[in-house]
């Protein structure tokens, strides 16, 4: 890839190393393609007490994430919907149409934790094949098979520039 986006450097500066405080989070802007997940940028923010519970999304097609420390211990975890899946409106007698896109951008919101080293993303299923009785999916061209688990380095985001 010819382009190497150096957004993260600026973002690390913006995020600046600091101690985790209650209600402090990082929004991770992510992209998923057939090749896996990519961290595009990050942004730190404060959230009112308890609101983070609302970010876990139930879904037929979940994407589970865990934030791990250097020993592989889970520091926090959550679930969002498979960002590739777009659901059409419920039509009388017709149900939803499901579109599985080859690439999608999404956000994860994780608590600031200086102990965090990795973001682990669980495999995304191949939506049409694994969901035998789900609505007929409109497979978007280029959609990959189920993606393997993946780990992304979070140290720069959590600790700022070394």
């Amino acid at each position: 890839m010819k382009h190497r986006h150096h957004l993260l450097l600026g973002l690390m500066l913006a995020l600046a190393a600091g101690t985790a405080t209650a209600g402090e989070f990082v929004a991770l802007r992510m992209r998923v393609t057939a090749n896996g997940h990519e961290l595009l940028s990050a942004r730190r923010f404060q959230a009112p007490e308890g609101t983070s519970q609302g970010w876990n999304t139930h879904s037929d097609h979940p994407l589970a994430w865990q934030m791990l420390d250097g020993r592989g211990q889970v520091l926090s975890q959550g679930t969002v919907g498979d960002p590739r899946v777009l659901r059409g409106p419920l039509e009388p007698g017709g149900g939803h149409a499901i579109v599985v896109r080859p690439t999608a951008e999404y956000f994860l919101r994780v608590p600031v934790d200086a102990r965090a080293t990795d973001l682990q993303l669980q495999p995304l299923a191949r939506v049409s094949a694994a969901q035998g009785s789900r609505p007929k999916a409109l497979q978007a061209q280029g959609e990959g098979a189920g993606l393997p688990p993946q780990r992304l380095d979070l140290r720069g985001v959590m600790r700022g520039p070394q």
Binding site: F25, A27, R29, R31, R43, F45, Q46, A47, P48, T51, S52, G54, W55, P83, L86, G88, P89, E91, A97, V99, A104, E105, Y106, F107, R109
Partner: peptide
């Protein structure tokens, strides 16, 4: 098709910029 498409990243970036703790 009644499906609405949109620039998802832009929608969420707008949300994160102005109400980052949205549910």
């Amino acid at each position: 098709s009644p499906i609405i498409c949109f620039e998802e990243g832009r929608v969420k970036r707008a949300a994160l910029a102005y109400l980052p703790h949205y549910s």
